[in-house]
Amino acid sequence: MSGKQKLAIVIGSVREGRFGPVVASWIAEQARAHGGFEIEVVDLADVEVPLALPAAPPKYAGDSYPRPDGMAPLTAALESADAFLLVTPEYNHSYPASLKAAIDWHFTQWTAKPVGFVSYGGAAGGRHAVLHLENVLTELHAVTIRDGLAFPNYFTAWQDGRPLDSEAAGYAKTLLDQLAWWAGVLSAARDATPYPS
C-alpha cells in the first residue's frame, strides 16, 4: 500500500475524433508529477455503458444492482477511487450522454468523495458542462471541487498534446492540491463513521 489516495481520471466523451484522451493524458501527467495520488485512467469508450437502465435505481439496490458484465471495470474503478477527475467536453451546453449514463449506473461509488473537473470546448471551455455535472454529483452526495480547469477554444489552444497557456500546470497543481486535501479528509471520515444515507 503506497499510502496515496487513489484518483480515477474518467474520459467522458466517446465521440469519434474526440480530444478527451489528449486532455486526460496531460492531466494524468500533472497528477503523477504532483505525487499525491495513485492514478487510474478510465476511458468510457472502452466500457459497455448502456443508456437503458433497470427499473430500480442504484441508490436502493446497492451492491445487487444488475450491471452488465462489460461495466465491471468501470464499477471497480469508481468503487476503489478516493477521488475523481472528470474530463469532459461541452456538447450543446452540457456534457456527453456517455458520461451521464456512467454516472447514473452508479450511486454509492460517488458518495462522500471529491470530484474535480477538467473541461474543454469552445468559448466557454466546457464550463456549461461542468455546471450541469456539479448539480448531478451533488445529488449523489459527492463533493465537487470549485477550482477546476477549463480550456476554451482547445482546437487552437493546444499543441503537441499540451496546452499553450504557460500557467496551466500551476492551475492543475491548485486543483490537485485541493482534490488531495478533500480526498484525505473524506477518506478518513468514511473510515471513522459510515456516511449517513
Rank of each mutant, 00 (worst) to 15 (best):
M1E: 13
K4V: 07
Q5R: 15
Q5M: 14
L7Y: 09
V10L: 11
I11Q: 11
V14F: 04
V14K: 08
E16D: 12
R18E: 05
G20S: 13
P21E: 04
V22R: 08
V23R: 03
V23E: 04
A24V: 04
S25W: 02
S25L: 08
W26N: 04
W26H: 09
I27Y: 02
A28Y: 05
E29N: 09
Q30I: 03
Q30K: 12
R32T: 14
A33T: 12
G35Y: 05
G36F: 05
G36L: 09
G36T: 07
F37P: 06
E38W: 08
I39W: 09
I39D: 03
E40I: 10
A45R: 10
A45D: 07
A45M: 08
A45F: 05
V47C: 08
V47A: 05
E48Q: 12
V49H: 03
P50F: 01
L53E: 09
A56I: 11
P57V: 06
P57S: 01
P58C: 03
G62I: 04
D63H: 10
S64P: 04
Y65S: 01
Y65E: 01
P66C: 04
P66R: 05
D69N: 13
G70N: 04
G70K: 05
G70C: 06
M71V: 06
M71L: 09
S80K: 15
D82R: 06
D82F: 07
D82H: 12
L85D: 06
L85C: 11
V87D: 06
V87Q: 05
P89D: 03
E90F: 07
Y91D: 04
H93L: 13
S94R: 03
S94V: 01
Y95G: 00
S98W: 00
L99C: 03
A102W: 01
I103P: 00
I103A: 00
D104G: 00
W105T: 02
W105C: 01
F107S: 07
Q109T: 12
A112T: 10
A112Q: 14
A112V: 08
P114Y: 12
G116F: 07
F117T: 00
S119W: 01
G121D: 01
G121P: 00
G121W: 02
A123G: 14
A124Q: 13
G125M: 08
H132W: 01
N135P: 00
T138E: 11
V143M: 10
V143F: 14
I145L: 14
D147P: 08
F151M: 10
P152R: 05
F155W: 15
T156W: 03
T156C: 08
A157Q: 11
G161S: 06
R162Y: 05
R162V: 15
R162I: 10
L164R: 11
S166K: 14
S166G: 12
E167C: 07
A169G: 10
G170K: 09
G170F: 08
Y171R: 15
A172E: 06
A172C: 07
K173P: 07
K173N: 10
T174W: 12
T174K: 15
Q178V: 11
Q178K: 15
L179G: 04
L179E: 07
A180F: 05
W181A: 14
V185T: 15
L186R: 06
L186M: 12
S187D: 13
A188I: 02
A188W: 03
A189H: 06
D191L: 13
Y195H: 10
P196A: 05
